[in-house]
Nucleic acid binder design. Structure first.
Lengths: 211, 211
DNA sequence: GCGGTGACTAAAAGCGACAATAGTCACCAG
DNA sequence: CTGGTGACTATTGTCGCTTTTAGTCACCGC
């Protein structure tokens, strides 16, 4: 039996869903939710709306999801996954760890901001998710940290970055620096810094990584 | 004629007040506001409450302040000044620029957090102020940046910090790093990081400043 | 003029009745 | 046993109304 989520999707540690994992109807729900949430927002779409959209009763939806929030989580995970994918692609296209880090940071911010402006409703879900510490948001931050760790590790191995400080500590500190731009909840308060921050902070971080 | 605010107070660039600058009644208003806001919060205290507390009519208060918000600003400025003073003292007690920076960051966070837990009502005003970009909050951030600039400048002169990158840029980047812990609006979202962040981030910043 | 106010208004907060919604459950069809 | 639902409830949101509240102004006593 396959895992509950498709490959590059962010998997919640404790999936708050029920019913069969891969089921046509489940996908239909997620799809309908994606459109409705994106159009009318999380609050303004009722579970009945989703039921109507896929031609089933509201009660049937609860065979697949524990709660409306669980549906929100699924959408949120999908949204955040898109950012992760963008970051992964940007990183893959860079040659050196230094460049990887720069691109990672920049892509992270720019996709986040673009989500904010082009898909505000979905962004709001993500922000809310981060604020409440939902698994989807946690998993997202965790994934970003992993990518970061990989970059730093690679940089250390190639001798491009210093090797004195403990890896975990370094990564954690850099993570703290990026946090205000990674976390959707915080990003919205830093929109005015979004132009300068990635470059300036990348410079600072990279200086701190110099061997 | 003296300036509108006592020496180590944060002065708004465009003082949104009216009436004589140093007037007994003005001080009484500020004092009463300090107590009421701190006790019952900004929203729950009415201007009439303040008037009653000092034994004058509500209308008279508006001879000294443009609006309730202006009174809020005064209180906010006072509150934030206290943080600045704490930071200045901590910095003054340190020998090297490195140590000054460490203490600055640490004091900033710890006084901010202590404000959050011990004077929540006042903290909320400060957070609101920062969110709305009131002059008092701007001035506070500006003052923090000045102190930071001074430390970096001193460190550069003494050869403790690198001198290659432009001073402004360096300071700005460090400022960005500290922002989530300086800005009361942001600090409240980072309370769980408050233990580790100052040390970890200080380490990172200082590594980036190494000559 | 200076120190001070009550009476007014426009806008917003508070409130209670009512409607919409999340979530459950017993039950039905094949 | 799988696939599916209508009818129910407890909670939450919303709407219109009343009360408060920020802010003004003309005016008073000295």
């Amino acid at each position: 039996m396959g895992y509950r989520f498709p490959m590059n999707q962010i998997a919640s540690s404790l999936p708050p869903s029920r019913g069969p994992a891969d089921h046509n109807v489940r996908d239909q729900i997620v799809e309908a939710a994606g459109e409705h949430f994106s159009h009318y927002g999380y609050e303004k779409t009722t579970v009945s709306d989703l039921a109507k959209a896929i031609g089933f009763s509201k009660a049937y939806i609860y065979k697949f999801f524990d709660s409306k929030q669980a549906i929100g989580e699924a959408i949120c995970a999908k949204t955040l996954s898109a950012i992760v994918v963008a970051v992964e692609e940007a990183v893959a296209g860079a040659a050196t760890p230094t460049e990887k880090f720069r691109r990672m940071f920049k892509t992270l911010v720019s996709t986040g901001v673009s989500l904010f402006f082009n898909d505000r409703k979905l962004y709001d879900i993500a922000a809310h998710s981060a604020g409440e510490g939902w698994p989807s948001a946690r998993a997202y931050c965790e994934r970003i940290r992993q990518i970061l760790t990989e970059i730093v590790r690679e940089g250390r191995e190639s001798g491009e970055f210093e090797r004195k400080t403990p890896l975990d500590e370094t990564v954690h500190a850099i993570d703290l620096v990026m946090q205000p731009y990674v976390n959707p909840l915080l990003l919205q308060y830093n929109l005015d810094l979004v132009e300068e921050a990635p470059t300036q902070l990348s410079n600072l971080v990279l200086r701190s990584l110099a061997p």
